[in-house]
Structures are given as C-alpha cells and as structure tokens.
C-alpha cells in the first residue's frame, strides 16, 4: 500500500517538475537560452494566489486563473526587460544566463520586500486531509496536481499540434529568419513563448503551494530540479520534459523514503550527473552537430 501512496506522491511532485520543465524547454527551443529565473515564477504566482484568495477573498477558481495569467504577464515583462536587451550580444549565452540569474535574485527579494520573510499558507481547495482510494490514503491535492497537469499537457499538445499559432511558434523556433519571410511576427512569438513558460511555472507554483509553504525561495529548488528534469528528458522535446519531470519526482520520493530523507534534494542531481555521463543527450535528445 505504501508503494502506491509513494507513487501518487512521486507523480504529483514529478508533475510539478514537469510543468516547470516544459517552460524551460519551450523557451530553450524557441530562443536557445535558459531562463534561470523560470522557477521563481512559481513563487510569484503562489504569492499572487495568496493575495487574491486569502486576502481579497476571491473565489478559488477565479484567483487561480488570474494568478496564472499574471505569471504570464510577469514573464512577458521579464523577457522585455531582461532578455531583449542582451539577446543580440555576440555569444549571447553567458550574458543572457547572467541577466536571468540577476533577475532571479531581484524577483526573490522584491517579493521578500512585498510579502515579508514569514512563510504564508495557501489553503487547499479540498477540506478533507486525505481521501481513501480502496484502502490507500492519499492527499487530494496530489490528485488535483496530477489531473491538472495531465489536462494541461493535453491542452498544450492540442495547441502545438492542431493550431496554426502553435505551428507558427514551432516554425519560429526552428528557423526564425525563414519564419519572418513567411510573414510570422517572430518577436511576438518569442514574447508569447516566454509568457507561456512562466504561466506554466506559475501554475505549478499554485498547485504545489498548499503542500509546501509559500516563501520567496520556494521557486529556486523547484526550478533547479525541473531544469535537471528537462535535461534528463533531452532538453528539446515536450515528451522528454514530462517524462523527465515524472521520473525525477518518483525517484526523489522513493529515494527520500527508502534510501535517505536527508538527501532527498540530492537525487535529482545525482540522476542528472549519471545521465550526463552515460547518456549526454538525454532520453529523447538528438545529437546536433554545430554548423560551421
């Protein structure tokens, strides 16, 4: 029975990583940079949620939607202020990375000023502590996380596979110059990509907030592990990000229970290092030679 309980927990934690990892992958495939502040948007949305639902007493669902949208808007502003100014630097990886690290520090402390250092509590939408599934007791919030993530993934899949806008975003990611020649507004596509990725991060933050506390640093470790998950998944595919996220969540949960609780946070990185040594392009990654 414990195994099933742990599996549910692992899938739920993994879903959170998967959502944030999806954000990493979207931005990376679109503009070839890593947003090191990606995880912090989980924190941003969770704080918005607390303000809207706990302080302003908005209905849970409405607060939920508004918070996710606000996280997307924050992501849009973030790319405008931080990514756009450095994107044309030669060898732009380092400047962009450093700028986003700076952005992460800034966001965390901006919210420290706004909300103070005391951790806040976001109640779950469910009143009861556990539900009984044929003898197995699980947190309903975990089930909610898994269901919402599954729906979100299906939605994203529909968006990228079935809509013209989704295909235009993919086209922009694959060859921006040609995309422009086709009439695609690539700047808008990139801004949309950032907004979507931070909205996904925000969604993850709101879902996980009732399980943990809402603190200014809650996003950084989620972000780092999600980043690890996206690399394990190959860093270039949606499928990889999801499977990588779920795998890290499950390994961490089981490892934390059966091997060592103290080192729970280390498992993601140990898995990552093993992958980088033995399968450097991840589960679904392709080796791409640099064009000379």
């Amino acid at each position: 029975m414990q195994v099933i309980q742990l599996l549910v927990t692992g899938l739920a934690v993994g879903s959170i990583y998967a959502l944030v990892a999806l954000g990493f992958v979207l931005v990376y495939t679109a503009v070839n940079v890593v947003n090191f502040a990606q995880g912090d948007f989980s924190m941003v949305a969770a704080f918005f949620m607390v303000s809207l639902v706990v302080t302003a007493h908005l209905p849970y669902a409405l607060g939920f939607v508004i918070s996710v949208i606000l996280a997307g808007i924050a992501g849009y502003l973030f790319q405008l202020g931080i990514y756009q100014p450095v994107k044309n630097r030669p060898r732009n990886f380092l400047p962009v990375m450093i700028a986003t690290v700076g952005g992460s520090i800034f966001l965390q402390h901006l919210f420290l000023i706004l909300y103070g250092p005391v951790p806040l509590q976001l109640p779950s939408v469910f009143k009861q502590q556990t539900v009984d599934l044929g003898g197995v007791h699980v947190y309903p919030q975990y089930l909610l996380i898994i269901v919402v993530t599954a729906v979100m993934v299906a939605l994203l899949n529909w968006f990228f596979e079935r809509t013209k806008l989704g295909k235009q975003m993919q086209a922009t990611a694959q060859d921006p110059t040609t995309a422009r020649l086709m009439g695609i507004n690539t700047a808008r596509m990139n801004a949309l990509t950032f907004a979507m990725s931070t909205a996904l991060g925000g969604l993850a933050g709101i879902l996980v907030a009732p399980v943990y506390m809402v603190t200014t640093t809650m996003g950084s470790l989620i972000g780092l592990k999600a980043f690890a998950a996206s690399i394990v998944g190959g860093f270039s595919s949606v499928k990889g990000a999801i499977i990588g996220g779920l795998a890290i969540g499950i390994i961490e949960t089981f490892g934390g229970t059966y091997i060592s609780g103290a080192y729970r946070d280390a498992f993601a990185f140990i898995v990552l290092v093993l992958f980088l040594i033995f399968r450097p392009y991840g589960l679904f990654g392709e080796k791409v030679s640099q064009k000379v």
């Binding site: 890593v34 090191f36 990886f93 990375m97 080192y263 280390a266 990185f269 450097p280």
Partner: peptide, 21 residues
C-alpha cells in the same frame, strides 16, 4: 568535456547542492 553552456551550469549547481546537503 561534453557539456557546454547551460548543461555545464546545471552540473555545477547540482554539485553545489549536493555538497551543501
């Protein structure tokens, strides 16, 4: 050796986290 840019950054972060733990 085989890692560049963000991969490398993440491995160093992972190392950092493990050492702190």
């Amino acid at each position: 050796l085989r890692l560049t840019t963000h991969y490398l950054a993440l491995v160093t972060i992972g190392f950092q986290v493990i050492i702190s733990l």
